[in-house]
């Protein structure tokens, strides 16, 4: 348990600051398939963003810009919901993709 804090360093009552999971848990390592975004087919309906369980469809200015592969678990919900087949699920190959 190297790198973990000792009891004297812990916050009172175990209270922690919000929104820290993203930095601590890189759930992208769970992925067996990765979504590939075909921008040319995308109509920017944002359905993939709305339904992503892992907040891993990146948007800027109300438009999809790609995926957060550090957290995307490869569930394929985005590909299933996409009305234009603009998202393709492809098998992860090797460790370098699975652990970005």
């Amino acid at each position: 348990m190297a790198g973990l804090k000792g009891w004297r360093e812990l916050p009172l009552g175990g209270v922690v600051a919000g929104g820290t999971a993203r930095d601590l848990n890189k759930t992208g390592s769970w992925r067996a398939e990765r979504p590939i975004w075909h921008e040319e087919k995308c109509i920017q309906c944002l359905q993939c963003w709305l339904h992503c369980p892992d907040d891993s469809v990146l948007i800027r200015g109300g438009k999809v810009t790609g995926f957060d592969y550090e957290h995307c678990k490869g569930c394929g919900v985005c590909a299933a919901i996409c009305p234009k087949d603009a998202i393709e699920m492809v098998p992860e190959r090797g460790g370098e993709c699975a652990r970005p």
């Binding site: 348990m1 973990l4 804090k5 000792g6 009891w7 004297r8 812990l10 009172l12 009552g13 175990g14 209270v15 922690v16 600051a17 919000g18 929104g19």
Partner: peptide, 19 residues
């Protein structure tokens, strides 16, 4: 924003109880 009542596994439960 803070999180109250987080879930602690065997890596932190003991230290939190000691605190």
């Amino acid at each position: 924003p803070v999180t109250w009542g987080a879930f602690a596994m065997s890596d932190y439960y003991f230290e939190l109880k000691r605190a």
